[in-house]
Design a protein around this nucleic acid. Sequence first.
DNA 1: AAGCCGGGGAT
DNA 2: ATCCCAGGCTT
Length: 352
Amino acid sequence: MPNDFTKLLLEWNRSGNTRQMPWKGEKDPYKIWLSEVVLQQTRVEQGLAYYEKFIERFPTITDLAMAPDELVFKTWEGLGYYSRCRNLLATARTIAFEKSGVFPDSYEDILKLKGVGPYTAAAIASFAFGQPQAVLDGNVFRVLSRYFGICTPIDTPEGKKLFSQLAKALLYQDDPAVYNQAIMDFGAVVCKPQQPACETCILRGDCQAFQLGCIDRIPVKSRSILRRNRFFYYFILSWKGGYYIRQRKESDIWQNLHEWVLLERSEILEADAAGFKKELKILLDTAVGEVREISVVQKQQLTHQTISGRFIRVELQTPLPENSGYRLVRREELSAIAFPRYITRYLETHPL
DNA sequence: AAGCCGGGGAT
DNA sequence: ATCCCAGGCTT
């Protein structure tokens, strides 16, 4: 027998939830998994086009598993958190080639997949296989903390444990999939982070945060993130119609994506052609050509870093040495290679 | 347990 | 500017 919260939530879902999404009611675990990974820390509106594009290009998990890495990364380009893409591909290959294309159907086995944590495992288990696993995402944290007036920080082990138990206890056993979908829809549409629709909310009579007038202070988070400033100077070196790039490998931002010749500094550098030419010469330990253009300062905000810098176009007079770490690619090849947004944004206004 | 990993939209 | 998003991995 459902409790009051679950009853009210299901009532809202029946009568007041008009939210539509392509994966709603979907039972194919591949599509569920794909949609969930795309949507990790990503708004539905932002992820939607990527989901459609993946399904179109890779209709089955085997299609995805057999695809070249670069095509998959190119499809993911611009969505961010690129480890999701790397793990997506690894898991597709594991399932396609080691599990005969059969998606695991128990929560425990789903949880073992790369890139699949407690939330995604619960989502797949409930949506694709109807299992009684309660999802716990940003929406659920917010809805439950407000409704029950819980001030325990949600980003601590204690908070995670508390909300996990609560979510489990509230789950509608007769239809876990509908319940999970409903609570996330409710959090996204009604119990929003800012300016929630309390005036029309059918749960407000029992909502502790609303009754106490502290909606805007719940959920509570313990730590605040601090950002560091980094300064990237990208040299776009051209040689005989080609351009030098490399793939980022270090454990740093934008892993697996490509970039131009990078000079990183701890401060902003002026648009000084002679200065940049000198820096480049030191960086590559080789003669360099003419500096054609230096861009204005471009800035991008990441979660833990603020990237600022310039793009410097240089026409080489000799090719780079073989051991430079960079490879020469033709201009036409660049459209198949994945770059971080910081670079594609520049290219939008400064085509090669 | 804390820190790190993108990009975009809303406020 | 700040917050947050259908979180998960690494250290």
